[in-house]
Nucleic acid binder design. Structure first.
Lengths: 103, 103
DNA sequence: TATATATATGAACATATACTCATATATAAC
DNA sequence: GTTATATATGAGTATATGTTCATATATATA
C-alpha cells in the first residue's frame, strides 16, 4: 500500500489527539449539561452550579477544562464571570448527538 | 421556571447517558482509528490489529465496546470475523470532527 | 479424534478522570 | 486598610479506563 493510499485512511497523531480531546470533552454528563446550558445564553459559575445542582468547585474545574479546549469563553462583570459557548461547530455536534439519542 | 421551560434546557438522564456513552466511544484514539478504518470497508480482527499495530486482544476488547453500542457489526466467514461500521450517523459525527480538527 | 487458526474473555495493572475539601485569589464596597 | 462575594486552584481520593498476558472458545481441516 502506498504512502498516499495509507494517509487517506490513517489519521496523523495531531488530528487524532485533537479529535479525541474534543470528544472527551463531550463524553462526560456534567460537561454535557454545562455545555447544553451555555449554548443559548451566558451564565455565571454559581448560576450553573445552582441550576445543575453541582459543587461550585466541580463546575469551575470543568469550565477550565472546556476553556482550555476553547469550547467556552467568559466575560467579567465585577467579581462575576459569565461563561458562554465559544465553538458553534462542536455545539452543533453535541446537538446532533442529542437529537440522535432522542430518536 | 416552569417544568416546560426547564425541560427545554435540561436533558433527561436517559438521553444524557446515551449521548455521553456515544461520545466516550469516540474519545479514545484507538477506537477512532478502528472506526476510521471500518467506515469504508470491512476488516477482520487480525487485519485491524496488524494495520494499526495493535495487540489482537486490545482490538477485540475495543470491538466489543463498539459492538455493545451498535457502532459496529460483524459477519462470520469460517473462523474469521469481518467487522464494519453500523451507525452512519455517528460515523458522520466522527468525520465532521476530523474535518474540524484539520481546519 | 487431533491440530491449527481466529477471536473472545477475564484478571491484573497502570494511568486517567471527576469529584470534594480546604484554601487562595480577585474584585468591590465600606 | 477590612470585609464580603465570586471564582480558581491544589491535594487527596475513589472510580473508570485501556492495555497486556494467559487462556478459553469456535470453526475448519486432516
Amino acid at each position: 500500500m502506498s504512502i498516499e493510499k495509507r494517509t487517506q485512511h490513517e489519521l496523523d497523531d495531531e488530528t487524532l489527539f485533537v479529535v479525541s480531546q474534543t470528544f472527551k470533552a463531550l463524553s462526560d454528563p456534567t460537561r454535557i449539561r454545562i455545555l447544553n446550558m451555555l449554548c443559548c445564553e451566558e451564565h455565571s459559575v454559581n448560576d450553573i452550579a445552582e441550576k445543575l445542582d453541582l459543587n461550585q468547585s466541580a463546575v469551575s474545574h470543568q469550565l477550565r477544562f472546556l476553556k482550555n479546549l476553547r469550547l467556552v469563553k467568559f466575560r467579567r462583570e465585577g467579581t462575576t464571570l459569565y461563561y458562554s459557548s465559544d465553538d458553534d461547530h462542536i455545539i452543533n455536534l453535541l446537538h446532533q448527538a442529542i437529537d440522535h439519542a432522542k430518536h
